Amino acid sequence: MQTVSNVLKLMHMALVPVLERAEVVVDATAGNGHDTLFLAEHTKETAQIYAFDIQPQAIANTKARTAQYAARIHYILGSHEQLDVQVPGQLDAVLFNLGYLPGAEHTAVTRHESTKCAVKQALAKLKVNGIAVIVVYPGHPEGKVEADMLAAELAALPCRQFTVGCYRLLNHPQHAPYAYLVERVKASQA
């Protein structure tokens, strides 16, 4: 099995140390529930998980996949733009796996406007040493716009408060998925 070519699996591995002590985590794009299940399997029983998606089928798929953890998962049929309202307090980890619902019509995709808003909210709520993972898919038109927007937004974050990394496969096509890893290293100045 290849390891370095599966961007999402590498990002999952980066999240594990944070998830082991996490109290509040967010799957900002629940999709078919694979990421929500990963979060549930790697957090303690008292952790609260918030899973967002705008598509009823995605929430149904996520509920079915994560049924054994349902008591601590909040399934939210709505945009990740509602993160501020739906998730109280600070976040230990947040995962954005952007794009479209695998196996569904590709007309329903994440949009750069809502993603920009949700990422800003998530980063504002991120605890010190908390991590945000953002996987982008520049292989479709909106995905390219979204990826470019995130590159600009994340590069502009103050380095005294955040460390931002990008994992990209250099010998793969430019439209291959890649990921950002953002860690809050210092609290915001009030």
Rank of each mutant, 00 (worst) to 15 (best):
V85F: 00
V128C: 07
V26G: 05
I134P: 02
E142I: 05
C159F: 14
E153R: 02
A155W: 10
M13V: 15
R21P: 04
V7G: 12
S188G: 12
I73N: 01
R111C: 01
H74L: 00
M149Q: 04
Q48H: 01
S188M: 14
Y137R: 03
V128T: 10
G139E: 12
A64W: 05
T163G: 01
G99D: 11
K125C: 04
L91T: 11
E23V: 05
K63V: 05
T46P: 03
A151N: 12
V18G: 00
D27R: 14
K186S: 02
G165N: 09
A147I: 06
V164I: 07
A155T: 12
E105G: 14
K9W: 09
A118E: 09
F52Y: 12
G89C: 07
A71D: 15
A156Y: 10
A156L: 14
A132V: 01
E23W: 01
I59N: 01
Q174Y: 00
H172S: 13
A67Y: 05
G89L: 06
S188F: 14
Y178Q: 12
T62Q: 08
L91M: 10
G33P: 10
V4F: 14
A122T: 10
K116I: 00
L154N: 06
V25S: 09
T115D: 06
V7Q: 12
I49Y: 03
A132K: 00
A108I: 15
Y178F: 15
A152G: 01
H106Q: 15
L150H: 03
L170R: 13
C159D: 15
L19C: 04
I59D: 04
H12A: 10
